[in-house]
Structure formats: C-alpha cells, structure tokens
C-alpha cells in the first residue's frame, strides 16, 4: 500500500502525464496564438502581443492607413431604421397622427385609400411611411408637393403620421398564386429577387412598403425612377440594384399585378 500513500500528483505516471499535457497545451498555444498568426501577411499580426490579440479575436481596426472615406453627398437617405424605431412611441401617437393627417386627405384619401395617382397609405408599414417622410424632409427624395408639406414637421410628427396610417385597415393582400414570375420568383440568374420576397406575399423587410392596390401610374413612375437612378433614397442602392436589372416588360408585369383595379 506504500505507493497509495504518496499524494496523487507525485505519482510518477499521473505527474508525468500532467506535465506532458501542460507542455502540449503550452506548445499548442504558441502554435495557435503566436506562430500561425505571425505567418500571416498582415502587419497587425506581427509581434507577440498583436499575434495573440488577433488570434483571440479582440475587436480593433484592421485598416489603419487607408485613404479617408469620400464625403457623403447631401441627397442620400439619412434615416436609421431598426425594429425599434417606431415601437417605443408615446401613447396617443395614433390620435395625434390622425389629426396631422387632415392635411394629407386631399391626395391620400379620407382614410388613407387614395383615389388618384398618389399612393394609398392605409395599413402601410409604419417604418416605410416614416422613412419616406424623413427623406422628403432632408431632400433625399424629391417631390414638389410633399417637400413643403413635411418641411416644418417634427420627427415625432412624422412618427405619429406613420403610426396613424399604419393603424388603418389595409386592403387584403392578393394571392401570389396568380402572380407573374417577376413577382413570385424574380429572375435569380439576372440578380433580381422576387418582388414578393421584400414587399409582402412571401416575406416583408423593414422599410419595404406593401405594394398591393397602389395606383399603377405611381408604381410605374417609381420603378422607372429607381431603374434610371433618378430616385436615390433607397439605402445602399437596395432597390436601384433590382430595378436596373428589370426589363420594361417585367416592370409592366409587376405594375399590372400590384396595381389597383382602377
């Protein structure tokens, strides 16, 4: 029993194994955190501390000496949309928006359903309405009618309007089963996602409006403006990228499908 009285770590086999394991760990650490990172062709992995921090994934700037970014032109959308942008609104927001909306009824209809070539707003995504209103205010989107109307409104006013129109009943969405290919499938080989993958039907995306039952003339004008690059308030060219690849026939098919019955 004498060999059991020794503490376990002094046992030759146990102690030897532990020592070997510790050396292996150290060796692997040196390989993974110092040797291999230092072998990369990147100044920021050179030196022991840099190599260890880089391999451990410490966040830092990886492009120190690049030419400075170009200034942002004035007519670019500055709206920041997150899922929370419109969700923390004060109580009464919809009511205040309803009062402010009295100025809008002439074109957008008494209850947000337009009878002219202006878009219907009833049940529209609040985030989309807010973004467009802000863009009219900053000049990122231009309209001789809308710009003066929103010029003096506060940010909260815009949010209230967006909440009000978002709360109104929306026209029922159409069945995608009858949709033309451009709406239901897009054209993946030509870099065109289906309209329905952002604008409802399949899925929706924050900031992308519903298009169902919008006036045909409005839809056509906006799609053409995106495809010609004359409307540029889509963040990072999101919609211009798509519209620029669409053929005139596809634009017409999408307009026909989404356009209201009038």
């Amino acid at each position: 029993m004498t060999h059991l009285r020794k503490p376990w770590w002094r046992d030759r086999i146990v102690g030897g194994s532990l020592a070997t394991l510790a050396m292996l760990l150290l060796l692997s650490g040196v390989v993974g955190f110092v040797w291999l990172p230092s072998a990369q062709n990147d100044a920021r992995f050179k030196g022991i501390l840099d190599a260890i921090c880089g391999a451990a994934g410490i966040p830092r700037g990886w492009l120190a000496d690049a030419v400075p970014p170009l200034p942002t032109p004035r007519h670019v959308s500055t709206v920041v949309l997150t899922p929370d942008t419109l969700s923390h609104d004060a109580p009464g927001s919809i009511g205040r928006g309803g009062t402010l909306a009295l100025k809008c009824t002439m074109c957008h209809g008494l209850r947000g359903v337009s009878t002219s070539e202006t878009p219907s707003l009833a049940g529209q995504q609040s985030a989309s309405i807010y973004k467009q209103l802000r863009d009219y205010q900053t000049g990122a989107r231009s309209s001789a009618v809308m710009e003066p109307l929103v010029k003096d409104l506060s940010d909260q006013d815009l949010k209230d309007l967006a909440m009000f129109y978002g709360s109104l009943p929306r026209e029922p969405a159409r069945d995608l089963g009858n949709a033309p290919d451009i709406v239901a499938f897009g054209s993946p080989t030509r870099n065109i996602a289906a309209c329905g993958s952002c604008h409802g039907g399949m899925t929706s995306k924050l900031g992308a409006p519903w298009l169902d039952a919008q006036p045909r003339a409005y839809l056509r004008t906006q799609l053409l403006a995106f495809s010609h690059g004359t409307r540029r308030n889509d963040t990072s060219a999101q919609m211009r990228n798509v519209a620029a690849n669409m053929t005139p026939q596809e634009i017409e098919q999408a307009v026909e499908y989404y356009g209201s019955g009038r």
Partner: peptide
C-alpha cells in the same frame, strides 16, 4: 443600422 450615414460604408 448606420452604415449609410458616415464612415467607410457610405454609398459614395
């Protein structure tokens, strides 16, 4: 959320 406002990922 703010890529488009400033820094190196602005559209320009």
């Amino acid at each position: 959320a703010t890529l488009q406002l400033s820094g190196e990922f602005t559209e320009a």
